[in-house]
Design a protein around this nucleic acid. Structure first.
Length: 241
DNA sequence: AACTAGTACAACCGCATCGGT
DNA sequence: GACCGATGCGGTTGTACTAGT
């Protein structure tokens, strides 16, 4: 594959000349491109979003000359090129927030992402699938084993909660709406109590912010001038240390 | 060194919803 | 109210990378 800015882990030295040749050849064709984005495409997209704003993606894709559909441009912008995107490892605090909000809302990735400034729904979704889900499964299995060891006589009690991927896949789509009478099973299993999450100084500010933003459906993807306010908010949150 | 399985993550796809006409 | 294009969202796939053998 020619050089592609998408794969940040790529360890090989990009072959720019080859990439440009391939890129130009591709650009000459009329068919819409798919797959990883080239650096040139990124630059082009940034330029045109700056000029036209982050709306009307089909129009933007047409006039920019990028051989991509509007949808693809939008996704690339939102998940990678947008300013204030936080690339890099998810912090422990962010992880705790994700766990808690997932416990509360289920697979509402966009909603969860709105509560984590700079993180995208895609990133959170991927992080959940690759890191947290496995952690929780392992923790639960361990919990199960421990319970069985502690009281072998009552093994039958645990037959229902024997855990496998299938049952967990089904479980994870069920949000817990009323948190008052429920235990945070996943959080507890990982040693994160919800109080630990809400007691974090970081988290206190976060919930204030979330309260203001989430239910009023503020979206950082919208093209109006209020966006800047949202990002100023988020900046102040992340600058707290 | 070569192969394989597992992991991480960007990007795609299909469906739902929204907003303008 | 119906239609249609744009946008948002969640699930899934494709592929580079990494660790183990």
């Amino acid at each position: 594959m020619p050089h592609c800015s998408s794969y940040k882990k790529a360890g090989t030295i990009p072959m720019f000349s080859t990439a440009i040749m391939v890129y130009k050849a591709v650009m000459q064709g009329e068919k819409l491109r798919k797959g990883p984005w080239y650096e040139e495409e990124d630059k082009q997209l940034i330029t045109f979003v700056t000029i036209l704003g982050d709306r009307k993606w089909d129009y933007l894709a047409r006039v920019s000359g990028i051989k991509r559909c509007g949808k693809s441009c939008r996704l690339r912008w939102l998940n990678y090129l947008r300013p204030n995107i936080k690339h890099g490892d998810i912090s422990i605090e962010e992880e705790q927030i994700i766990l808690q909000l997932h416990e509360q809302w289920g697979n509402k990735w966009a909603r969860i992402a709105r509560s984590l400034p700079g993180r995208t729904d895609n990133e959170i979704k991927n992080y959940w699938r690759t890191h947290l889900r496995r952690k929780i499964m392992q923790a639960r299995e361990q919990e199960n084993l421990q319970c069985k060891r502690e009281d072998g006589k009552q093994d039958f009690l645990f037959q229902k909660v024997d855990f496998d991927v299938q049952t967990y896949e089904a479980d994870e789509h069920k949000p817990v709406d009323d948190t008052s009478g429920t235990s945070n099973t996943s959080l507890d299993a990982l040693g994160f109590s919800s109080s630990a999450v809400t007691n974090s100084p970081y988290e206190v500010q976060f919930f204030d912010w979330d309260y203001n933003c989430t239910e009023s459906c503020i979206s950082y993807t919208s093209g109006n001038s209020d966006d800047n306010d949202v990002w100023e908010w988020s900046d102040s949150i992340w600058d707290m240390n």
